[in-house]
Nucleic acid binder design. Structure first.
Length: 899
RNA sequence: GGGCGAAUAGCUCAGCUGGUUCAGAGCGCCUGCCUUACACGCAGGAAGUCGGGGGUUCGAAUCCCUCUUCGCCCACCA
């Protein structure tokens, strides 16, 4: 690490080098080990169960970067941390992917059979799941990988059974015959959350059902005409005058030979449609409830893959539901019973994994009773113990808790935790047993048993992660030490799937919240605001970005571009625009480091405090005091921003300090001192080294690789050094120096003024000009005189001392600084009186307009009376300065117009 | 149908408690520069009625009302 640094930052080389170093030192998981002393409540961040099929997509890149930033930050601030990473891949998605692979071979899961299929999925998961960790390490994530949990490891499996059995014994888990969301493609039940409601432009058909005695008809409306074949009643509102006389009479259900009753039910809205509802108890949740109240038959007319079954007239059997819809409508039309077809926009449930339209289906499923669990979870939020960032997400959470419905947890899949319930086959016993261990005989009658065929919803195991990953139900020391965690960082789309359920199960099983702060970051979207997804082909592979621009560039873009609660828009077709700023910044930092570190040869006097007795305050020049003050202000600003989870603000504060203050101004200022002949080189070295180090600290959570690489290359490093273990910089009141900030600001303004004149007059960059200042306040002792060498170098000025009188040099170009100081460049060969006159008149006019409105403001009695005193004073000060500036400009203009 | 959010430079967005960070940043654009840390750079510049309208206030990008357009969450009107 002592070879000369390359002029261009090479992320691939540096990151790979550090990756191996960190891995060898075990520093991908050093967090908890170092808190061996007194018990420390660690800062815990959890990783959501990734969708193993996606391996690593931009969402994970974003999520894990935010997590890593917070974890590194807390570690640097002296807190023990624990980052629990894991993969829970027991969901529909994983099964889908393997089914797709099978489809390419022309097979389905049914061809393989349960056991072979599960083995096949396992093989896939092992292959892809293992690479996730390597990929996350590649973007610098420092989670405690040794604690990684996998869905089917022993801990998880045991916890799942324990949770199920406990809830079963408390009566919170029950088996019920209800309408659930069914995906005809995945052939499984879905929870309400998994059935995404999407608005679609559909149609509504008005169908006429004749009365059985032929004395009239009743019209019903439906968006799913095919379900009429399963109708077992028509319902009207009991108070509806139009239909009161018809209640109790029978209808002849068209296309069938069945007769169905007309019933009265409160659930019907008399103002909607015709006020009469066809009742299909087996295929609609509302109808199911109506059917129950009126003791109606339930007629299931569909097969699991949504074809019509043998319960319908023969000509419809085997038809797909959408095909059947057309046939039913056509037949109604032929019979003259189709009254109307209207366009209708309504919400249709779709499977969140495969987008297939969900079919409400009557079946036996396992449910969790949610109301008792939701109550304390809601209370935790209302009492303020559980907080959300951004805050408004808390209301979404509360709303969901208040309207919670029971959770369907059984899935008719083969891949997942199998439901730990056994049914006794003996007809006289028939006992149902939930058990923590596998059963071979019925505990009641010793007869043969068979296990429930279904598996659990993935989120059933995921909700246990905060404690199952720590060894629950055993009371392990990990659990004692790390259980109530601190912060959860995750995506808003799994607020209900995962976050809410972790809160509920944590409160119920552990008696305490699993975390107290939920930070919900935005979603990565493309320029059309679509969520990035594989199927749309608008995704960005984070590893591709890492290869091209480096992990730090990726992380910088993510953090800098995302303010609290907003989404991150990236253009997949233009990675350059998004990620180059991060790469450029890394390169800038690299070169600033190259310069500073390269000049630290020889003894560098330490600078312990800003004005320690090693390098005393009296040795510091204006620029030194200025950069130390700026550095301290950046510490304050960045720390405050980090603490408020405003990571983008922290990023921009450090960016600005490094690029604008340190690189553009300070490094330029100290060059003469470093290059030898000027005094104070060792002071400059000390100050540069110190402020640069602080900047590395502040930036490390966001850009760990490059900051660590530079940190390791500084002189005086020790083996085993790591920035993440170094203490966070503290603000020092002695560093604050408003005088230096103001004075150096005027130096910068002076240089800018000279540069502006040079550019305006197109003076050759190589040509030196004479320049001067008329500084009425500090003649001879002003900072402009002290820093004249800097002004000379950066403004390319030949005058060895500032010229003091503009008039003595003929025509000059002048810029007036806000405090009235005149900066002027005698024009010599490039005299251009008309041009200068235009420049100054424009400036005079601008100031004139500013002054006019300012005077109006200050003549307003209301303003003078009502505005706070400081504000009035400030405004008066402004007026004074502008008047002064205007006077100076007018004066110079006068000189130009005189012959 | 209910709830929430957003609209600021050509693009992506900051702007928190109304007034010296008030009209900003990055990218893009224009003009000069290969100046011994960096052309992934340096210096200078152009560019915005702060979505429309109304109100509150001495003062509004900022607070209130309203309209328009996008987005998100929730919801068993068939």
């Amino acid at each position: 690490m002592t070879e000369p640094l390359a002029p261009q930052y090479n992320p691939e080389q540096i990151e790979t080098e550090l990756y191996h170093r960190w891995e060898a030192a075990g520093s991908f998981q050093p967090s908890v080990r170092r808190s061996a002393g007194p018990p420390v409540r660690p800062y815990v961040v959890m990783m959501p169960p990734p969708n193993v099929t996606a391996i690593l997509h931009m969402g994970h890149g974003l999520n894990n970067t935010v997590q890593d930033v917070l974890v590194r930050l807390e570690r640097m601030r002296g807190r023990a941390t624990l980052w629990l990473p894991g993969t829970d891949h027991a969901g529909i998605a994983t099964q889908n992917v393997v089914e797709k692979l099978l489809a390419k071979e022309g097979k389905t899961r049914f061809d393989l059979g349960r056991e072979a299929f599960v083995e096949r999925v396992w093989a896939h998961v092992k292959e892809t799941g293992g690479t996730i960790i390597e990929q996350l390490k590649a973007i610098g994530c420092s989670a405690d990988w040794s604690r990684t949990y996998f869905t089917f490891d022993e801990r998880m499996s045991r916890a799942v059974r324990e949770a199920f059995v406990r809830w079963y014994e408390k009566g919170l888990v029950y088996r019920g015959h209800y309408i659930i969301n069914w995906c005809p493609r995945c052939l499984t039940a879905l929870s309400n959350e998994e059935a995404e409601k999407n608005e679609v432009d559909g149609r509504i058909w008005r169908l006429r059902y004749p009365l059985a005695d032929g004395s009239g008809s009743i019209t019903v409306a439906t968006t799913r005409p095919e379900t009429m074949l399963g109708d077992t009643a028509v319902a009207v509102h009991p108070e509806d005058g139009r239909y009161r006389d018809l209640v109790g009479r029978e209808l002849a259900l068209p296309l069938t030979d069945r007769r169905i009753p007309i019933v009265a039910d409160e659930a019907v809205d008399p103002t909607f449609g015709s006020g009469a509802v066809k009742v299909t108890p087996a295929h609609d949740p509302l109808d199911f409830e109506i059917g129950r109240r009126h003791d109606l038959a339930t007629l299931d007319i569909m097969t699991p893959d949504a074809r019509l079954n043998d319960a319908v007239p023969e000509r419809f059997r085997g038809l797909d539901r959408f095909e059947a819809r057309k046939r039913v409508v056509a037949e109604f039309e032929t019979l003259g019973l189709l009254e109307k077809v209207e366009n209708h926009r309504h919400a249709v449930g779709q499977c969140y994994r495969c987008d297939t339209v969900v079919e409400p289906r009557l079946s036996d499923q396992w449910f969790v009773k949610m109301a008792p669990l939701a109550k304390p979870a809601l209370e935790a939020y209302r009492s303020g113990r559980l907080r959300f960032i951004p805050e408004r997400r808390g209301e979404e959470y509360a709303q969901w808790m208040e309207n919670i419905r029971d959770w369907c947890i059984s899935r008719q899949l083969w891949w997942g935790h199998r439901i730990p319930v056994w049914y006794c086959d003996a007809s006289e016993c028939g006992k149902t047993t939930a058990s923590r261990t596998d059963l071979t005989t019925c505990p009641a009658c010793r007869g043969p048993v068979r296990q429930d065929e279904d598996v659990l919803d993935t989120w059933f195991s995921s909700q246990l992660v905060p404690f199952s990953s720590l060894g629950w139900p055993e009371r392990t020391s990990d659990l004692e030490r790390y259980y109530p965690g601190d912060t959860l960082v995750t995506a808003p789309e799994i607020l209900f799937f995962w976050v809410a359920r972790m809160v509920m199960s944590g409160l119920d099983f552990m008696g305490d919240l699993p975390f107290t702060t939920v930070y919900l970051h935005g979603t990565v979207r493309d320029t059309q605001h679509r969520k990035m997804s594989k199927s749309l082909g608008n995704g960005i592979d984070p590893l591709d970005v890492v290869r091209r621009y480096g992990a730090d560039a990726l992380r910088y873009t993510i953090i800098a571009g995302m303010s609290v609660g907003t989404d991150l828009i990236l253009d997949p077709d233009d990675l350059e625009t998004s990620f180059a700023p991060g790469r450029n910044f890394a390169n800038k930092l690299w070169n600033a480091g190259r310069f500073i570190l390269g000049n630290l040869h020889g003894p560098v006097r330490p600078l312990a405090g800003p004005y320690s007795n090693v390098v005393g305050r009296e040795e510091l020049c204006l620029a030194d005091r200025w950069i130390i003050a700026r550095c301290d202000a950046t510490v304050v600003e960045a720390t405050a921003a980090y603490e408020r989870y405003r990571l983008n603000e922290a990023a921009s504060a450090v960016y600005h300090f490094i690029w604008s203050d340190l690189a553009d101004w300070y490094i330029e200022q100290i060059k003469p001192r470093l290059y030898g002949d000027q005094p104070g080189g060792d002071v400059a070295r000390a100050v540069a080294a110190r402020t640069f180090e602080v900047a590395l600290h502040l930036l490390h959570p966001i850009m760990p690789f490059i900051t660590e690489a530079l940190w390791l290359r500084r002189p005086g490093r020790r083996d085993g050094d790591s920035l993440v273990e170094a203490p966070w910089p503290r603000s020092d009141p002695r560093a604050r120096d408003p005088e230096a900030v103001g004075d150096y600001g005027r130096v910068q303004q002076t240089i800018a003024a000279i540069r502006q004149i040079r550019a305006d007059y197109r003076i050759d960059p190589g040509e030196l000009v004479r320049a001067g200042v008329i500084d009425t306040k500090f003649v001879g002792s002003s900072p402009l005189w002290q820093e004249w060498q800097t002004i000379r170098r950066l403004g390319k000025v030949s005058s060895t001392t500032p010229l003091v009188s503009a008039d003595g040099f003929g025509v000059s170009a002048t810029v007036v600084l806000p405090d009235g100081t005149q900066v002027f460049v005698p024009l010599g060969d490039v005299i251009d009186v008309p041009k200068e006159r235009i420049r100054l008149s424009e400036e005079r006019d601008r100031l004139g307009r500013l002054l006019a409105s300012q005077m109006r403001k200050l003549e307003n009695h209301d303003f003078l009376n009502k505005a706070p005193k400081e504000v009035v004073e400030r405004e008066q000060e402004k007026l004074k300065n502008w008047t002064e500036q205007l006077q100076v400009i007018t004066q110079r203009l006068g000189l130009l117009s005189s012959p």
